[in-house]
Simulated scan of single mutants.
Amino acid sequence: MLRTIVSGVAIAGVAFMLVVTMQEPGAWPALAAALLFAMGCLWERRYHAAQQGFPQDTRFNLTGERFVDPETGRVTSAWVDPATGERRYVDEGDPPSPSA
């Protein structure tokens, strides 16, 4: 959720700086900085998904199944290809800490 908000703000910043740069050409360094920030946000979203192992193939759908893998002790989610029934299990990270 936070990644979506930051990416949206970054894209809005690029749009704003584009308008400012069209009115005042000397503002191009700020436009370049906004573009770099937006590109970094969008790259990070893709990199994070790839790093976590989420299936990049659009044919896979999240099933909603989540469990703690008994071997690793980490939260795992299940993804399925509806056409073939192939399943992929993705490590989502450490399990939530028990509440005190």
Rank of each mutant, 00 (worst) to 15 (best):
M1I: 01
L2I: 00
L2V: 01
R3W: 00
T4W: 01
T4P: 00
T4R: 03
T4G: 00
I5D: 01
S7C: 03
S7V: 00
G8C: 00
A10Q: 02
G13M: 02
A15T: 04
F16W: 03
V19T: 06
V19I: 11
V19M: 06
V19F: 08
V20G: 00
V20S: 01
V20Y: 01
V20E: 05
T21E: 12
Q23V: 03
Q23D: 07
P25D: 08
A27F: 09
P29L: 06
A32V: 14
A32Q: 12
A33V: 07
A34H: 09
L35H: 03
L36R: 13
M39N: 09
G40D: 11
C41N: 13
L42W: 10
E44K: 10
R46P: 00
Y47M: 11
Y47R: 15
H48R: 14
H48Q: 12
H48N: 09
A49I: 04
A50E: 15
A50W: 15
Q52V: 14
P55E: 12
P55W: 12
Q56H: 10
D57T: 01
D57F: 10
T58G: 11
R59N: 12
R59F: 04
R59D: 12
N61D: 06
T63M: 13
R66Y: 10
F67K: 01
V68M: 05
T72V: 09
R74V: 05
V75L: 15
V75K: 02
T76E: 11
S77C: 09
S77R: 12
A78N: 05
D81H: 12
D81S: 11
D81R: 09
P82H: 09
A83I: 03
T84C: 11
Y89T: 06
Y89F: 15
V90S: 07
V90L: 09
E92L: 13
E92S: 01
E92N: 09
P95W: 01
S97I: 07
A100D: 10
